Simulated assay, not measured.
Amino acid sequence: APARDTQAGYISWGHSIVTDPWGQVMKQLDEKEGILIEEINLDREDQIREQLPLLKHRKCEMYHL
């Protein structure tokens, strides 16, 4: 998020978060400046992503980087 400036036209909300692929919040910061470090279990991430139907129906051959 951009730096929080309460005098600006847009005030950054902050609240950076770490979520799992289902969107469950694992850790969250408030609106104050901070650093968020979280260890991610990549095996668990892979298991959850295998359950996401959206990923099974992607047509990767249609996307080129």
Rank of each mutant, 00 (worst) to 15 (best):
E61V: 08
Y10P: 00
Y63W: 11
H15Y: 14
R58Q: 15
R4V: 03
W13P: 02
S16E: 14
S12R: 05
D20S: 02
D20K: 01
I48R: 01
I17A: 11
P53I: 07
L65W: 11
I48D: 00
Q28S: 10
N41T: 08
R4L: 01
L42Y: 10
G23Q: 05
W22Y: 12
Q47K: 10
G34H: 02
L29T: 15
I17W: 06
Y10M: 05
R4W: 00
E61M: 06
I35G: 07
G14W: 01
H64Y: 08
E39A: 12
K56H: 01
C60G: 07
P2G: 14
L36V: 02
W13K: 12
I37E: 13
A1W: 04
G23L: 03
D43S: 08
L54V: 10
T19R: 08
N41M: 04
R58P: 04
Q47C: 02
E38V: 15
D43P: 03
G23P: 04
E39Q: 13
N41G: 05
L65G: 12
P53E: 13
E45K: 05
Q24G: 06
R58H: 06
T6A: 10
A3D: 10
D5W: 02
W22G: 02
Q24R: 14
Q7R: 10
L52E: 08
G9N: 07
P21Q: 04
K59E: 12
P53H: 07
P21V: 00
I35L: 12
K56Q: 14
I37S: 15
C60M: 11
L29Q: 14
V25D: 03
L29D: 06
I40R: 01
C60A: 11
A1H: 11
E31D: 15
S16Q: 15
T19W: 00
P21C: 03
E39M: 09
I48L: 01
A8H: 01
G9M: 07
V25G: 03
T19D: 02
Q51Y: 02
E38K: 12
I35M: 13
L36R: 09
D5H: 00
I11Q: 09
Q24A: 11
D43Q: 10
L36D: 09
L42I: 09
A1E: 12
Q51P: 02
P21H: 02
H64N: 08
L52N: 13
A1L: 04
L55G: 03
W13G: 04
I35Y: 08
L54K: 13
Q24N: 12
I17G: 05
Y63A: 08
C60N: 10
K32A: 14
R58D: 05
N41I: 06
D30C: 01
I48P: 02
L55P: 02
G23V: 01
I48Y: 02
